[in-house]
């Protein structure tokens, strides 16, 4: 189990203790509290397991603050992959995860996909308000298995079913994303500028989510304990070279 189940529910004394002692960050707490965005209560995402096309079992679970340094290492090589917009997605995701780690992004969550403990992809998002979700990024590391599609679906599932939101605002930064989200979900165009660069958002409503759920959202709960234990024990990441090869290599699809 994660050490800190909910980063926003810590008592102030614990936050202070953590920042000053555990993380050795010598900061002025009075100022720090002014810098942090306000937060909303967030329900946890219950993990699930998905059987992929290759028969392997991908555990989808919520990552926690202590996972962020590992996730950052995994995202780092994508900043230099200049294809399929991995560079812009990677750079923005990196900063968002950093924002999550340093309490500079409000109500952010990150879901990871793991096979035998290995990280195969991640998604992040945040609650813009109690009713509206702001979808941030989807990063597939293992390609050709619809990992990104499954993780994006999990993200929508979290917004609508567990966080109880009415809508999610979404943009795509790549043609692949546009096909996966806007077309496959039949998202509604809006004139609302999205946080990600101001592109006009598309909207997944609660109604549309449940309409599309049977063909786009899958997964079994509860996750068998042996699978969950492996996933929670450690997030194992590929080396930078392996990550580049998985994403942009000759066989990358």
């Amino acid at each position: 189990m994660p050490i800190y189940p909910s980063r926003y529910s810590w008592p102030m004394a614990r936050i202070t203790n953590y920042i000053l002692k555990e993380s050795c960050m010598a900061v002025d707490m009075e100022l720090e509290l002014m810098l942090r965005p306000p937060s909303l209560p967030m329900a946890p995402y219950p993990p699930k397991v998905i059987t992929l096309a290759n028969g392997k079992k991908m555990v989808v679970r919520e990552a926690h603050r202590e996972d962020v340094p590992t996730l950052l290492k995994s995202v780092h090589p994508t900043l230099f992959i200049h294809k399929d917009f991995y560079d812009v997605v990677g750079a923005r995701l990196y900063s968002e995860l950093l924002g999550m780690y340093t309490y500079r992004t409000a109500n952010e969550f990150c879901l990871v996909g793991q096979i035998d403990g290995f990280l195969v992809g991640m998604v992040n998002s945040r609650m813009y308000s109690a009713k509206t979700g702001m979808s941030l990024h989807t990063l597939a590391i293992d390609r050709g298995l619809r990992v990104g599609a499954h993780l994006f679906a999990a993200k929508m599932e979290h917004h609508i079913e567990y966080l109880g939101q009415e809508e999610v605002l979404i943009v795509a930064e790549s043609p692949i994303g546009f096909r996966r989200w806007m077309l496959e979900y039949g998202l509604e165009p809006t004139d609302i500028p999205h946080e990600l660069g101001g592109a006009l958002s598309y909207r997944l409503t609660r109604e549309l989510y449940f309409e599309t759920k049977p063909r786009l959202v899958v997964g079994d709960r509860p996750v068998p304990p042996e699978l969950l234990e492996v996933a929670q024990r450690e997030i194992i990441i590929a080396s930078e070279a392996e990550t580049r090869e998985k994403i942009a290599g000759l066989k990358g699809r």
Partner: peptide, 15 residues
């Protein structure tokens, strides 16, 4: 790929 992953599993609808 496996038959389970692309046909038999209920998750194949997405895969």
């Amino acid at each position: 790929i496996t038959r389970e992953g692309i046909l038999d599993s209920p998750h194949a609808v997405v895969n």
